[in-house]
Design a protein around this nucleic acid. Sequence first.
DNA 1: CACAAACTACACCGCGCAGTGTAGTTTCAG
DNA 2: CTGAAACTACACTGCGCGGTGTAGTTTGTG
Lengths: 204, 204
Amino acid sequence: MQRPSEPQRLTDRKRAAIIEAAIDEFRAAGYEATSMDRIAARAGTSKRTVYNHFPSKETLFAEILRQLWEASIAGEELSYRADRPLRDQLLELLAQKLRLLNDEAFASLARVAIAAGIHSTERARDMVARMGEREEGLTVWVRAAAADGRLKAKDPVFASHQLQGMVKGFAFWPQITLGQPPLSAKEQKRVAESAVDMFLAYYA
Amino acid sequence: MQRPSEPQRLTDRKRAAIIEAAIDEFRAAGYEATSMDRIAARAGTSKRTVYNHFPSKETLFAEILRQLWEASIAGEELSYRADRPLRDQLLELLAQKLRLLNDEAFASLARVAIAAGIHSTERARDMVARMGEREEGLTVWVRAAAADGRLKAKDPVFASHQLQGMVKGFAFWPQITLGQPPLSAKEQKRVAESAVDMFLAYYA
DNA sequence: CACAAACTACACCGCGCAGTGTAGTTTCAG
DNA sequence: CTGAAACTACACTGCGCGGTGTAGTTTGTG
């Protein structure tokens, strides 16, 4: 028996190496500027092997996006609890969100996906659908708290987007679009607490 | 005498046509995927003429960025007034901001610039500097209001980023990265009012 | 109207890329 | 140990790109 992280079969190792190399290259240079020759070289395989695994650059790219997406949605859902303070629950929710946003795997996905989506309308459509699901965590919580009478948010989707906007403005967009460094633990705490307090000052 | 929008000299008309075509092409396909042949064709000139005006694709691209940037900073500054309600002033500030975010010229710049900056670190550095200035309008207002004792924002930069985050989460990032349609006047109003009220509930 | 400046068509170069075909070598399960 | 499956090196095609050079035409000013 072998650990799945180190596959025994040569073909699996090669495939993994190709995907890893492709992630690095696409992330560093984007879709257009990345060549299959470079990917093959970095993966330590022949170009032919790359094409034996993936029929085209487009296919390989799609697989990368799929893998990164799956890697990024490992987080578990936190559900509303009527017996706990709103502030504590929201802070936990945001902490989870910030953990995701600061995760390098997720950031890679976002950069590559956004870069790809900016130009290709159809690719952008794919993203819209997927992103929608991911936002749900916070939204359902807000909806539950509102239904419980503890938040006066008439539109949970709107309210949760407001809250997320405040966080992403510090912890996501600058890192994705301007290559800024991720937030430190201290900064994360500050951003989350301030956002939650402002949110509750208005909606509680 | 001739209107500057329709230059008389052939060479000026050609140059303008090239720039216009380049904006369209770069916006539609990004830097890498746009070819000089296509730009020339769309501009209705020969490729040689393009190269007579701009020594390289890179130069042309830089000029596009410069032009779009200048077109986008037409807005005048609104300064803090001690004799007016905070809410009214903030709403005006945000309305101005939303007007800019919804402006097609600005959106074009942002899309092209972000697409360019995502991969090239040096290009991203340029953007950081420029964007910084642009944010200043709201920040100086917050600082003034805080100095006047009407806002308890200890960190004006942080507070103004929070406010902007809420707005951009609806009116900027979805449009830039996911190709979503701009906000209607009604939606803009809602976003601005809700953001300002939340902001004041916390900081006033 | 002459003439310089600008534009055009077009051929051309070198390059790197996506993708293929082939002939030979390595891997590894039965 | 055998043999199929997988990998490798490498040569090659076709294409589009950025950029240049040239010879001839158009434009518009003095």
